[in-house]
Design a protein around this nucleic acid. Structure first.
Length: 267
DNA sequence: TGGTATGTTCCAAA
DNA sequence: TTTTGGAACATACC
């Protein structure tokens, strides 16, 4: 389901609900999602308090009172639900936190791809993750260095979480369209001027998506409105809102890839 | 029934 | 050695 804007929206929503909550119990119904070891995590969590929530890449980060962390990755179909005492459970509950308040955080995940990681070493757990695209350190020069450091298809490079953190299939396609760059272009062939445009496009697209609470097009993630503002993603065969060209869909790196052949020539 | 899915990892092939 | 392609994970929807 989620990319950076959707995770950011979830973190903002659940920050108020979770900050200060004391964990009474933790349970997983699909233990292989929990690492490093479900029984150890189940034993460690009761008694701890959630200090606050934040986001790193597509991870929801809970900072706990013993200075350890829980990282939750929603992958394709994960979502949070909030359950008050007496309310009935929704479908696909895979893990749940019960708080001393009696309220419960549910981790629902139809496809069971999500991950829950408990760690006392946040730096080590996130060591392989690339730069945050909305931070000041993500400059056009930095993006240029990343793109020119290898010769790869630009679309798959933007999706590589070890380089840039948080872009997924929707916002990669949207950013490339805004920058006028064909998704099959080689990363090391992107000109300095194009790097500048792409850098601006990534920041603009992500910020706009956050403003709209992310993108919603199925039952998994209901709270977003960015779907009304997408220019290419999911618009195969429809006219480009910029030039009137017909949006095409191809497959790169096993991901559907949407672009406007007129705004984004292959050269 | 078959195709598709907002993600990531691993291994083989090029 | 670097990059790409395919399968796997597991399930639901159209």
């Amino acid at each position: 389901m989620p990319e950076l804007p959707e995770v950011e929206t979830i973190v903002r929503k659940y920050s108020k609900l979770l900050s200060g909550q004391k964990i009474a119990a933790f349970e997983s119904r699909w233990p292989r999602q929990v690492s490093p070891d479900y029984n150890a995590v189940k034993t460690a969590l009761p008694g701890l308090q959630i200090n606050n929530l934040s986001r790193r890449a597509k991870f929801i980060v809970m900072h706990l009172s013993n200075n350890s962390w829980l990282l939750v990755h929603l992958r394709m179909s994960g979502r949070f639900e909030w359950l008050k005492p007496g309310e009935s459970e929704p479908a696909h509950v895979r893990a749940l936190w019960t708080f001393e308040s009696g309220e419960q955080l549910l981790f629902c995940d139809a496809r069971k791809f999500g991950r829950i990681i408990y760690t006392s070493d946040f730096a080590a757990a996130t060591a392989g993750i690339g730069i945050e695209p909305l931070e000041r350190s993500f400059t056009a020069a930095r993006l240029g260095d990343i793109l020119h450091s290898h010769s790869r298809t630009i679309k798959t490079m933007l999706l590589d979480q070890s380089l840039i953190a948080g872009l997924g299939n929707i916002y990669t396609d949207e950013s490339l369209h805004m920058a006028g760059i064909h998704p099959a272009r080689r990363s090391d062939g992107i000109s300095d001027e194009e790097v500048l445009r792409l850098h601006g496009a990534i920041k603009t697209v992500l910020k706009e998506a956050i403003r709209h609470n992310g993108t919603s097009f199925d039952w998994i993630y209901p709270d977003g409105h960015m779907q009304d503002n997408l220019k290419v993603y999911g618009r195969k065969g429809e006219p480009c809102r910029s030039c009137g060209g017909i949006i095409e869909r191809t497959v790169t790196g096993q991901r559907g890839t949407h672009f406007c052949p007129r705004c984004q020539p292959l050269k």
